[in-house]
């Protein structure tokens, strides 16, 4: 995976200088985490969650939603009660 893919996936526009800088930093981070591969984990279940908990459910009950005005408060642009975004398809 190269820095261009990463920046596209995270929607970050990087200058060439930044690309070089971050590519180096990211490589170092990955290298560091690679250290974990040195451990023998063959007998260990993959851990997705560190708490010994499961089946935390809610009942299928309604709770109040936000008033649309409030929900849309942070939207950069809106039209009526719709979020307004740049055209998605041609």
């Amino acid at each position: 995976m190269n820095i261009d893919d990463v920046s596209l996936l995270s929607r970050l526009k990087l200058s060439d200088t930044e690309k070089e800088l971050f590519a180096g930093q990211l490589s170092k981070i990955i290298e560091y985490t690679e250290k974990l591969n040195e451990l023998d984990t063959s007998g260990v279940e993959p851990t997705a969650h560190i708490l010994p908990m499961n089946n935390v459910f809610r009942e299928d009950k309604l709770r109040n939603s936000l008033p649309p005005d409030k929900a849309l408060n942070n939207a950069p642009d809106r039209e009526g009660f719709f979020y307004k975004v740049p055209k998605i398809i041609e």
């Binding site: 009950k61 309604l62 709770r63 939603s65 009526g80």
Partner: peptide, 24 residues
């Protein structure tokens, strides 16, 4: 066909006014 959404208590009903069934 649940009453509420998958991970919150907003209504899962179809056809309401836009953005009236949302929460944080």
């Amino acid at each position: 066909m649940t009453e509420s959404k998958m991970f919150c208590g907003c209504s899962a009903k179809f056809g309401s006014e836009p953005n009236t069934q949302t929460c944080p």
